[in-house]
């Protein structure tokens, strides 16, 4: 049911630009207004979410138990998994952001015949995730060829490496295949494992379908139903020079692609995809384990009035003296 809702939503998102372009001729709406609106919503929404998160108090440092913390000099510290310095934290964050180290540690629990409980490393999710994220990033950077005149040299390098198999014309990009395969795997994993399926929500399926739709329309445009790529670049260059105009004969497939991307951009700050910024706010990843070296004062502590013994004695000195109790100050 949740799966269907997400699937139909994406189908609707495909239908809107298709109908709008084919029957209503609204190319300036889908070529100019929608992309601009999406970028503005993306940037403002992203900044809003980050500022909102940044205003929540930093919790007490959580010592992760992934490795040996800094202790006595003859006990070897695990400096990456349990850092006590900023450098160590930077190292841990880099590994987390670029290589998903904590996902790599993903384990699977199984009750086997016996009965015995078995734990095993489960690397497939990590592999699919890393293939997906890196492919997506490379594809995004590759698109810079449509956003720049002259195209920077490193884009050429990236394209050559990505297309070095030189299969077919236009050359097959490895990342295109990887992206679709990885999204497909992540989707199948979600419906094939009962526990994962049980906790899956519409907001889990929707981005998968949306990104698959973006990848698919892109692949169709490149390899099967070609669109006028010169027109596409004219449109894009017009948009970024703030002099938008829509060339006539681009092809509705491009507008579907563009609309799905706009939807993804506008949706991102309000969805789980915000882990893009959120990963930098993971307390167990970005705080050094220096609890025993640095005093961490709870930021939401308010000043508590403490009634000290000296004040107590001031209040009751006469009565204490009269019953013969010793006092510190006469």
């Amino acid at each position: 049911m949740k799966l269907l809702v997400a699937f139909i939503s994406v189908l609707v998102l495909v239908a809107i630009p298709y109908l709008g372009i084919t029957y209503a001729g609204m190319s300036s709406v889908f070529g100019i207004i929608v992309p601009y609106a999406a970028v503005i919503i993306f940037i403002l929404g992203f900044v809003y979410r980050i500022i909102k998160w940044a205003r929540s108090p930093v919790p007490f440092r959580i010592p992760t138990t992934c490795g040996q913390e800094k202790s006595l000099p003859w006990i070897k510290q695990n400096k990456l998994d349990n850092p006590s310095s900023t450098t160590g934290v930077v190292g841990r964050m880099v590994l987390e952001v670029l290589f998903f180290r904590s996902l790599f540690r993903n384990t699977k629990t199984e009750l086997r015949d016996g009965p015995s409980l078995a734990y095993a490393s489960s690397g497939w999710l990590w592999l699919a995730a890393i293939a997906f994220h890196w492919s997506f990033l490379i594809i995004l950077i590759r698109h810079f060829r449509l956003f720049s005149v002259p195209v920077p040299y490193f884009i050429n390098v990236l394209e050559n490496v990505d297309g070095f198999l030189q299969i077919g014309i236009p050359t097959l990009y490895i990342t295109d295949v990887l992206l679709l395969a990885a999204v497909l795997y992540l989707f199948i994993r979600r419906i094939a494992i009962p526990q994962v399926r049980y906790i899956s929500l519409v907001s889990d399926y929707f981005p998968l379908f949306l990104i698959f739709g973006i990848g698919l329309t892109g692949v169709l445009m490149r390899y099967f139903y070609r669109v006028n790529v010169i027109g596409v670049k004219e449109l894009v260059m017009g948009l970024i020079a703030l002099k938008p105009n829509v060339p006539a004969d681009i092809g509705s497939l491009f507008f579907i692609h563009l609309f799905l991307i706009s939807a993804l951009f506008a949706y991102l700050p309000f969805s789980k995809l915000m882990h893009m910024g959120g990963v930098f706010f993971s307390p167990t990843r970005n705080l050094a384990n220096n609890n025993r070296m640095v005093r961490h004062i709870n930021p939401w502590n308010y000043p508590v009035h403490v009634h000290t013994y000296a004040e107590y004695e001031d209040d009751f000195r006469d009565k204490m003296k009269s019953v013969g109790l010793p006092v510190e100050k006469e």
Partner: peptide, 21 residues
């Protein structure tokens, strides 16, 4: 806001990257 120096630097970099074209 906590760690505002780092966070705002990061945000400015991010918005700069997004609007790079």
């Amino acid at each position: 806001m906590y760690d505002s120096g780092k966070i705002i630097t990061g945000l400015v970099l991010f918005v700069g990257l997004v609007t790079l074209p």
